[in-house]
């Protein structure tokens, strides 16, 4: 499938130096203070290459969301480095980081997190405007690729959980980001819907060379992933290939 959005945005990220994908080195992050201090990340290192689909599993409170926050330039680690497409995030100011996220990182949050006032098509148009994308941007192309073209004019309230999640994935891909961070995308979905959504994520990362990190509690869907890593008490185990 050829998608004009990806080609144009691909050019935007291509001029970044260094290796493509996500690279985390010895990240440590403590949260809370005093007695309640918790090591959310304890010497975490991780590499995800373009086109690779990595799943992270682990018990509640083990630091999975913290890892996504650090990987997504939403939080800075206390020590260690994070680089995306060769850009060291610690070099970026707060304002620059927002712009960097917009161009390079796509987020898919639990239950979609769409803007209630916007139709599916407008969700995508808004991100395209924020990112300063092409004037003739056509949301139908991306919505088609997630199988949602027929609900383009519907607002989130009129969509099912799975449909919302698919619109959320399309929205994360608008600016042509080459890193997709996904936090529990199937938490509110039934088994069949979960499989559809994760299959869609796998297809998008493989077809468009997107590095994808997905946090999940749902062991049923791991079959669609390339590698799985387990997190326990802030420590990330070595990613193992899925059989």
């Amino acid at each position: 499938m050829t998608n004009p959005t990806f080609t144009s945005a691909g050019a935007r990220t291509a001029d970044a130096p260094g290796p493509a994908g996500l690279s985390i080195r010895h990240a440590v992050m403590e949260l809370g203070d005093g007695d309640t201090k918790v090591k959310a990340l304890d010497d975490v290192s991780l590499d995800v290459a373009p086109g690779e689909f990595l799943a992270i599993v682990g018990p509640s409170g083990s630091g999975k969301s913290s890892l996504l926050a650090v990987a997504g330039a939403l939080a800075s680690p206390d020590s260690g480095t994070v680089s995306i497409n060769g850009q060291d995030l610690s070099q970026l100011s707060r304002g620059k980081r927002a712009a960097f996220r917009l161009a390079n990182i796509g987020f898919v949050f639990q239950s979609g997190n769409l803007i209630p006032a916007l139709t599916a098509a407008d969700q995508l148009r808004l991100v395209n405007r924020l990112a300063g994308g092409p004037k003739n941007f056509d949301p139908a192309v991306l919505l088609e690729s997630v199988g949602m073209a027929h609900r383009a004019a519907n607002r989130p309230a009129q969509l099912s959980g799975g449909e919302r999640q698919r619109v959320g994935i399309a929205r994360a891909l608008v600016s042509g980001a080459k890193l997709l961070l996904v936090d529990e995308p199937t938490a509110s979905l039934d088994r069949a819907r979960s499989r559809e959504v994760v299959e869609l994520l796998a297809r998008q990362s493989h077809e468009h060379g997107v590095a994808t990190v997905m946090v999940t509690h749902d062991h049923d869907v791991l079959g669609y992933c390339d590698r799985v890593a387990e997190m326990v008490d802030g420590r990330l185990g070595a990613p193992a290939p899925v059989r």
């Binding site: 304002g95 927002a98 712009a99 960097f100 991100v127 990112a131 929205r171």
Partner: peptide, 16 residues
């Protein structure tokens, strides 16, 4: 609040 935090995570600037 929630939708604004989502927009900020996506990368919308404060001034926008």
């Amino acid at each position: 609040k929630h939708e604004i935090s989502v927009l900020r995570a996506i990368g919308a600037s404060t001034s926008y």
